[in-house]
């Protein structure tokens, strides 16, 4: 059985789980990882990991700046904005 501490993983993923959610998800993850364990039976020595199906055949585009959004468009969906910037709760408390 895989060793899973669901609350540690939730903290890494920035998720706040209720105790009930944590119990159910712990059980689900154990079942899924139990199934995934079959991969360890497949010999893969010397096999290059495949990170994407096809290597891109197109060169990267020129690194030119272009106006894509106006500041107003970029901020249009912001939950909170002030002075042309995204506003978030205070990070550093100077007392």
């Amino acid at each position: 059985m895989p060793d899973i501490n669901i609350n540690d993983i939730a903290a890494l993923a920035h998720l706040d789980l209720t105790a009930e959610e944590a119990t159910g998800l712990q059980r689900d993850l154990e079942a899924i990882l139990g199934y995934v364990a079959r991969l360890s039976q497949i010999p893969t020595e010397g096999v290059t990991p495949m990170s994407q199906p096809l290597a891109p055949d197109a060169p990267l585009r020129e690194d030119h700046t272009r106006v894509w959004f106006t500041p107003a468009q970029a901020l249009a969906n912001a939950p909170a904005a002030r002075d042309g910037m995204f506003e978030v709760p205070k990070i550093i408390d100077r007392g």
């Binding site: 995934v36 991969l39 497949i42 893969t44 096999v47 990991p49 495949m50």
Partner: peptide, 11 residues
């Protein structure tokens, strides 16, 4: 898990 899965993906 992740690296192993990428290898089996290649297979």
């Amino acid at each position: 898990y992740y690296r192993k899965a990428q290898q089996v993906r290649a297979l």
